[in-house]
Design a protein around this nucleic acid. Structure first.
Length: 152
DNA sequence: TTTCTTACA
DNA sequence: TGTAAGAA
């Protein structure tokens, strides 16, 4: 079974494999603190308040964080830097988190992505709804960005 | 060396 | 929240 990856009882392949592997990542509190600029003291405090979560098992008493938690910490930190208090920053981060989750679901609308100009990073994104009654293409080229709509 | 908890400034 | 202390 080449190109596949077993995680638990589930087998992943292709994009799912990549996502599976990324979700397997476990980051220590020192590293997450270093990259986010949030102190270990804060991270432990936030966890105590229930704002973030870590994987603390019975065997190893050290905290490990999933990649999703790194994003969460970064977002909280971002809103904190913008002047929000901790509670409000967490609230904003949770909202952003949900928006990003929804955004990922919208990937299903993308039928294909074409890079038309490597140099300038121009391209076309073809959107296809499940009823296949409409086809919308988002275009990015030298004239700007626009949509092409086609009814079927 | 790093992390953990607790306690004090 | 930062920092120190003592243990793991």
């Amino acid at each position: 079974m080449k190109g596949k990856k077993m995680i638990g009882n589930t087998e992943f392949q292709g994009k799912q494999k990549v996502i599976g592997l990324l979700n397997e990542l476990q980051i220590g509190i020192g590293d997450i603190s270093k990259v986010t600029g949030v102190s270990t003291r804060q991270l432990r405090y936030w966890e105590k308040k229930g704002y973030i979560q870590s994987l603390k098992t019975k065997t190893s008493q050290t905290r490990k964080y999933r990649l999703a938690e790194v994003y969460r910490v970064l977002m909280i930190k971002m809103y904190l830097d913008e002047g929000y208090n901790l509670a409000k920053a967490v609230e904003k981060a949770n909202t952003t988190h949900k928006q990003l989750a929804l955004l990922r679901k919208f990937e299903k609308l993308i039928a294909s992505v074409e890079v038309t100009d490597q140099e300038n990073e121009y391209g076309r994104i073809n959107l296809q709804s499940t009823d296949k009654k409409q086809k919308v293409t988002g275009v990015l080229d030298e004239s700007g960005s626009y949509f092409e709509v086609e009814d079927k």
